[in-house]
Design a protein around this nucleic acid. Sequence first.
RNA 1: GCGGGAGUAGCUCAAUGGUAGAGCGACAGCCUUCCAAGCUGACGACGCGGGUUCGAUUCCCGUCUCCCGCUCCA
Length: 498
Amino acid sequence: MPTPQEALGMVTMDKLVSLCKRRGFIFPSSEIYGGFQSTYDYGPLGTLLKNNIKAQWWKAVVQQRDDMEPLDASILMHPRVWEASGHVAVFNDPLVDCKECKARFRADHLWCLTATHRDESKQYAVEAGEEDEALSKGRELHQIGKRWEVSAAPMVIDAAEGTPQVCPKCGAAGSFTEPRAFNMMFQTQVGPVEGSIAYLRPETAQGIFVNYDNVLTTMRRKLPFGIAQVGKAFRNEIVTGNFTFRTREFEQMEIEYFCWPEQSAEKHQEWIDARIAWYTRLGIARENLDLYEHPDHKRSHYSTRTVDILYRFPIGFAELEGIANRTDFDLSQHAEFSGKTLDYFDTKTERRVVPHVVEPSAGVDRNVLAFLTEAYTEEEYTDQKGGKATRTLLRLHPTLAPIKAAVLPLAGNREDLVATARALAAELREDFSVQYDDTGAIGKLYRRQDEIGTLYCITVDHQTIDDDGKVTIRDRDTMQQVRLAKDEVAGWLRDRVR
RNA sequence: GCGGGAGUAGCUCAAUGGUAGAGCGACAGCCUUCCAAGCUGACGACGCGGGUUCGAUUCCCGUCUCCCGCUCCA
């Protein structure tokens, strides 16, 4: 059965994975050792694509704005950072499995409801994040009448005489495994001596918060202003998968935007709009983006509003970037845990606040996957022999395409064509990523470049040498050709790949 | 981690209890003047470990990896 994405003519994940492997974008990591779970390596073209995406991000969120600063903080940080941020607690969920129905629950999300009415009393089990939610969920699920008094208590899994242990899903009693702690943070040790632990950061954001004051003072900033950072983060996810969509090691492009408390809602919306505009400008169709407003009970403990930007991946709409209003939570926590003042004092108005923070947090690897998904195109055509054939191409935005131009001699056995083409390629390499290829007939070379998204194929023929000094430039998307003087190619390209 | 499915060449697949073929791709050579032409050549795989067997890619067990679901989120 085709997935909804296939029905829309979208590329399947299998085809993307295959192309990525075949053309040097993304390889399974440690492949010669049989691979390593959920890790991937970016190959030559994937590296270029990923770097181009990050470069466009830096340009849009830092270079082209007057209110942003870049930062590159270390992955290892003081362990107290993660106590302050809440990650030690939050990322330490105790999980239990129901042995009967195989469902898995967070142990702290299981509740026992007791409903009483006069002499009658009933007990129910529900799964919920908080007590209020448990109560309303329980009423709904078990249709407890209004006259019933209902109370909720956390289900105690390992106590022999605690609240009843009943699986909310299948109703089996006493079927839970012992709770096991899943610490989502990778631990490591600092120095060769055991005992001094540190964490691999589960988000780059905290590196920004702990440097907030440094940046503020050294860069002479005033509210509002933001700090941007790109870097690796690590989460010991229980479940990974869907190619590079969810991996334990991943890269983030994060912004923490510090502002006055009363302007945070407005800035939040501005960033949502700005980020959508960035994606669409780089070629993502607006209808392939969707917004998801986190309902109250799903939102992180620190956030007043969180909006996800979803992309229509081959697996369906899924999160590409999360934009949260984190309020003053992080700076307040760090002020408390570090004992340092992280207030902002405005000398003009003599007003003192802890700034509020808007956080647009995007996944680099998901960006790569999204842009590849969007770009992947198969065109049917009739070949020279009259048969059906498919042209596969990546319609990547000019700034993102890993290779901007390929220089091709029309025949690889003509030394003069080869020499001229090589010289032109060398000249263009000063400014662009360029490939030279003479290993096949021209049609084959075109197809090869199409599949990696090369913007232009520049062909040197006998006229170039014998006659007019012009080369043929062939467009990836339209296959249209124009002839242009050899010396004008660099300038012509420059106008088109900015 | 649990349940289900699957691992044969770079990719897509085939066959077989007697150690494996193809198409495409990639490589070398010849040829080739604009959209995957042709010819020649060389390279290239049974995920790993163990068991049964005279002999295992094939059967069994374990393990690893991948896919789907449970969970979480960039």
